[in-house]
Design a protein around this nucleic acid. Sequence first.
DNA 1: TTCATTGGTGAAAGCGCTTACAATTTCGGC
DNA 2: GCCGAAATTGTAAGCGCTTTCACCAATGAA
Lengths: 368, 368
Amino acid sequence: MRKADKVTVDVISQKAGVSTATVSRVLNDSPLVHPKTKRKVLRIVQELNYVPNALARNLSLNRTDTIGAILPWVASGFYSELLRGVDDVARAAGYHIILGICHDREQGPELALKYIREQRTDGLIILDPVLDEPILDEIRRQNVPFVLIDRTVPSQHVNTIMIDDFNGARNMTRHLIEEGYQNILFITGDLQSYDARERLRGYQEAIEESQLAQKKELVIESNFTREDVVPKIAKYVEKNLLPDAIFCSNDEMALGVYRYLLENDYKIPDDVALAGFDGIDTIDFLGITTAKIPMHDLGAAAARLLVDQLVKGRSGGDTPALQPQKVMLQTELLIRKSTLNPKKAAKLVENGPIQTKLVGEKRREPLL
Amino acid sequence: MRKADKVTVDVISQKAGVSTATVSRVLNDSPLVHPKTKRKVLRIVQELNYVPNALARNLSLNRTDTIGAILPWVASGFYSELLRGVDDVARAAGYHIILGICHDREQGPELALKYIREQRTDGLIILDPVLDEPILDEIRRQNVPFVLIDRTVPSQHVNTIMIDDFNGARNMTRHLIEEGYQNILFITGDLQSYDARERLRGYQEAIEESQLAQKKELVIESNFTREDVVPKIAKYVEKNLLPDAIFCSNDEMALGVYRYLLENDYKIPDDVALAGFDGIDTIDFLGITTAKIPMHDLGAAAARLLVDQLVKGRSGGDTPALQPQKVMLQTELLIRKSTLNPKKAAKLVENGPIQTKLVGEKRREPLL
DNA sequence: TTCATTGGTGAAAGCGCTTACAATTTCGGC
DNA sequence: GCCGAAATTGTAAGCGCTTTCACCAATGAA
């Protein structure tokens, strides 16, 4: 049924009375075709509503105009912003996105390799914290441009987009100190993960550098989950005096602590201040201070890096390959009511629970 | 650089001492190749780590193994579950997903058409509430299978996955009535939208059918946004007596109302009960009753429908085309503390704020 | 031994597009 | 009006895979 009306270059060239070569040239805006011919061909193209078959085109050009996005699906809502960022710049550059959701630990690398080997993608954006070296080598060996997100890698010759967890945590801690909090409890994430270690380091650095005397460094080790943190904070609070402030390594844990505190009639921030890290919706709604990870920018930056490589690679092999880059994005310190010390706050204008004030780093210009 | 080591069917056939036809047959598991030959070829394939080029394969087969997902990016986190659902069943069926995010109203249909015309996809899943008829016709004319999500369409011959907004809202209202609430305020979404109208209808139906005498039907018209609803609810509460319960057409508005109520020292549910619709994270955290839209299933159902069509279409043209289907998915009534009438609740076991109880429809078996 | 059969296999023609190269036309300058 | 260069256009060979159809070697029956 479709077969009959399938319109290809040949059909066009026939009707226009030119060769397929000319049609192709017209379609690709080649300068070496006579304006008159061009008009004629374009008219037919319009008339028949012709659009070149991408597959054939790509096969011929040895290019797919597609980039693969390999993502885990850990925190669904969280990553979607990232995807949006990738899409924004990729689309602007004429690239499509093929989705590679790695459901479990195994599938991620598999998928990436499959896409590459099948040559379905021109490049890859990989967000997979547990990608191990051998796989990475395998990927690199394929000679396809790729960008890693939020993943440290020993080898230098890899494009990477990172979050500056260290500075994010340090700034947060500084903020708490500036607000006059003295005993700041820090709850770590899973210390296996690089992010968790960096955030801890940031906290420690800020504590150390603080001029105030004998700051105590208070740390509870947890694992980024709500379930794990609640009993720990409960036990801690019962055994010790309540700290001035609690800084959780991520928002998820902050939510757990938040609930615990409210249920036990502690007032935030009057009895204890609370801060998280990530910038998820619920934290936003509750008016809890956090260090927001610029997910959109993260995706956009990755895509930008990748697209640059691809475009460079396309324009002849003569231009030298781009040097692999490491980009570091800053978090955004969103100060909310939950960390505004009432003693100081009295002097300030009233802060609504949702109102967000920007302190610390300036807002990054959005990429793209 | 890559050129030299590019391994194709020819290379394989050469090394194996057979023709490319045979290699192809081996790769496609054709029965008419001698086991011995097959083994030989497969060994070489392994050895050279050969994977067929998808582009060439697809061009030849006139098929892409790809389905396009056209989505708006209205509520980022919300749709990601849907995408996951699509991915789950699509991948299981051997299809890839190419992402089509329509940023603004214009781009959606454009994108869909582009993908089709370029023949980048075998089929399409479209979630776009404002897709208009002409475009739809155009899409249909392309003779490519597609499925519409949450979008009513006059014409019968279209695959559609719908949410049963009517029943969802009716069940919610029934629940509120059962809990003994008498004055139930309903806040509508943008009544331009079909969803909004259906939810209103469900509410009205439940009110009407309730045996209790002279139920008043209380309706405030809003538009699904927090900004719009807050002043309206404020004005309403100031002018009238507080209703028993407030049922918002979506969670977003419920959040607005929630905040308003708390800020004005109304206790939920003691002074007034609160319910939403959608099932977003924050509502979950706050322990607010809602009708959860099964986003994952929505995507999975759409993908299932599409994949069935595609597979059917693939297996020779003799099998009759599948009849277009309309699938209706039920929402899940998540009853939380926010609508448990204290007078009745006294008899019940204490309900923690997060605890979710399932009432009404049984949990749908997840598709796939 | 000879003649259909029947697996197995290979040659070659696509799939729909691009592009190097050859062929043709056009044109200014003589 | 003629010539070579420049401007257009056409021819045909790919891109890497599938698949039709023809071909060949076994195999069994006669």
